[in-house]
Write a protein that binds this DNA or RNA. Sequence first.
DNA 1: CCACCTTTTCGACATAAGTCAAGAAACTTG
DNA 2: CAAGTTTCTTGACTTATGTCGAAAAGGTGG
Lengths: 119, 119
Amino acid sequence: MPKALPVIDVSAPICCAPVSAGPMTDAAALEVALRLKALADPVRIKLMSILLTAADGAVCTCDLATGVDLAESTVSHHLGQLRKAGMVESERRGMNVHHRARVDALDALRLVLDPDCCR
Amino acid sequence: MPKALPVIDVSAPICCAPVSAGPMTDAAALEVALRLKALADPVRIKLMSILLTAADGAVCTCDLATGVDLAESTVSHHLGQLRKAGMVESERRGMNVHHRARVDALDALRLVLDPDCCR
DNA sequence: CCACCTTTTCGACATAAGTCAAGAAACTTG
DNA sequence: CAAGTTTCTTGACTTATGTCGAAAAGGTGG
């Protein structure tokens, strides 16, 4: 997998380089791929699902760990991936850290994947 | 990465299990993740981009290899991944094989990722 | 049937990625 | 400050993945 290193700030919402606006540059393709990779894991999809459907939209790490039935260190790792890709934001509340899904990032990603985006 | 094997027929368009329709089952999350994983690679994103913007919508393997500047065996591998995930369909035309993007699959995936899908 | 072209399959290799346990870090409360 | 709780980091391990070259498979035309 010898691939260019992810030196990109991928935590900001995707600017604009839809897959259907002409053949993509390598840089644009990498940017999109990095965000997709952050979501391309069953555990992380389930985490997003839990966050998106949570009552007040925010859930602490330990509850997420219970939700996906994995070690907390593993969940922390996955949350780090999602945060690095801008899909989740985290905020400390007392002893706990509450996480919430960034709907804007999800929307931006969906737009980039829209085949009709630029027609 | 000890994960359940992808024994799922992932080449059919996603049925319906949006991330925002309540906490996902493991099976649903896996199904979505497998399709995302197929797209979560810079080369494959660029291939999709080329296919989506091609004049008649279909491109042969060798032209795709030129487009991404990789060995044809590598491109064939990536196309296999995309095909297995239902993102591309391929058809033999004489000596060449022409590939085209499956817009329906892309649309289905975007719908599943829609936070407002079930509200 | 044979020479040639395109595509896929197969090995082999290097790198990336998911998982956990153990320990460090951040915070609260007595 | 000390004890307890939650979270993150680190290290180690196993498995998955992207890449290529070589060879096989599929198709065309003399």
